[in-house]
Computed example of a mutant assay.
Amino acid sequence: MDLHPTIGALPVPANLLGESPLWHPQEQVLYWCDIPGRQLHRFDPASQQHQQWQFHTEVACCAARAQSGLLLALRDGLWHFNPTDDSRTQVSAAPYPQATERYNDGKVDAQGRFWSGTIHEPRDTPSASLYRWADGQLQRAAGDITVSNGLAWSPSGRTLYWADTPAHVIYACDFDAQQGSLSHRRPFARFTPRDPAKDLAHYGGRPDGATVDAEGCYWVAMFEGGCLQRFTPQGELLQILPLPVRCPTMPCFGGPDLRTLFITTSREKRPAQELADMPLSGQVLHLRVAVPGLATHFVNSP
Rank of each mutant, 00 (worst) to 15 (best):
Y96C: 03
F262G: 10
L130I: 00
T100Y: 14
A93E: 15
E19Y: 07
Q273K: 10
A177V: 07
G18P: 07
Q178W: 01
A172F: 08
P187Y: 14
A64E: 10
F175I: 03
P279W: 01
C173Y: 12
H80K: 08
Q234T: 14
F231L: 07
P271C: 04
H41P: 09
R206C: 11
K269F: 03
T89D: 04
G293I: 00
L70F: 03
Y131H: 14
Y161F: 14
W32E: 10
Q283S: 15
R88T: 13
T165E: 14
P97H: 14
G225R: 08
P126T: 00
E224A: 10
G204F: 01
A60E: 09
S266F: 08
R140I: 01
Y103N: 01
C33D: 09
W79M: 13
S281P: 04
A290K: 12
N82I: 07
G69L: 10
Q51P: 00
P193L: 06
P83E: 13
A221K: 11
Q52R: 15
P196H: 09
E224V: 02
S301Q: 04
P193Y: 06
T249N: 10
E101K: 07
N149H: 03
V147G: 01
A63G: 13
L237E: 09
F55T: 10
T165S: 15
